[in-house]
Design a protein around this nucleic acid. Structure first.
Lengths: 149, 149
DNA sequence: ACTTTACCTCAAGTTTACTTGAGGTTTTAT
DNA sequence: ATAAAACCTCAAGTAAACTTGAGGTAAAGT
């Protein structure tokens, strides 16, 4: 496959559902790259589309641009990333995603029990009483509080 | 139960694991309330602890302070919220949480299929090709893109 | 050829959710 | 009684992730 860099910012922006300014910004922070034509206008290779899609998907998972950038650092610099390259990234984030899902499930399941419980004693409710949780490692609710995004 | 407002801001802060400035801020934006003592210092009723815990839990669900404030608007103003009041809130957020979980599961399950798939034709990959998805309601991937947080 | 549309850079502005600091008062501890 | 710790207000600062605007150039359509 030839690696023509022939996509304009406008095209990429429309295609990916982002603003042109976002692409400028992403380039500025090193998330994507572009080549320039004679008149100094950006021209992108097709793989930028995938990159942007991955950025958007990762953001929906709660991954920050900084973290995305770090993850991208593992992608090859010289050649266009292959299927395997992307799959590695995918595997990596899948783990985080699983943790996030597990956390949210835990939160969902304790919502009634904690937010709505009426446990005014503040003795048994993990959400109500974060101090106890943090000091008590062998408590089922620890997971809830130790989770860092 | 007597409704003494006798918790100091420092006490509440430590108890809830937030900074004093955060409590000032929450009060400023109308998320919590306080009474004042003779010397103009804040004194809180116990239910502020629950409010703050709920705020923190909701934030972990991805709910913004604005939305939390709106949800709190349904709580009674005159009396201290009861178990039922909180449970209603809980039920409401549980739905959103379920949607979020469902979305993340979908994302997780399509990570390999989309991010890692290598479908360079850009014809069949929903993450790769958001435009098509938005225009096509009866596609399994629509859920993925139509989700708004 | 000419005009509209797209693009360029760089600086500054926006939103959310807080934090920090200055300058001063009140409580608590000894 | 006095010093230390906690509290007060108000303005300004911070970080992330962009967006907007000004002033100017390039490419595309007719």
């Amino acid at each position: 496959m030839l690696e023509e860099a022939n996509l304009t910012v406008g095209h990429v922006a429309k295609r990916c559902g982002v603003k042109v300014s976002t692409l400028h910004f992403y380039e500025q922070v090193g998330l994507i790259k572009s080549l320039r034509n004679q008149g100094n206008q950006r021209r992108y290779k097709r793989d930028v589309l995938r990159r942007i899609s991955v950025i958007k998907a990762a953001q929906k998972m709660g991954v920050s641009l900084e973290e995305i950038k770090n993850a991208f650092a593992n992608l090859p610099d010289k050649r266009t990333p292959t299927k395997d390259d992307w799959q590695q990234l995918s595997k990596f984030w899948q783990q985080g995603l699983n943790q996030k899902i597990a956390y949210l499930e835990k939160l969902r399941d304790s919502l009634d029990g904690c937010i709505g419980c009426g446990c005014l004693s503040m003795k048994s409710c993990p959400i109500y009483n974060p101090e106890d949780i943090l000091g008590n490692e062998n408590n089922g609710a620890v997971l809830l509080e130790k989770y860092k995004e």
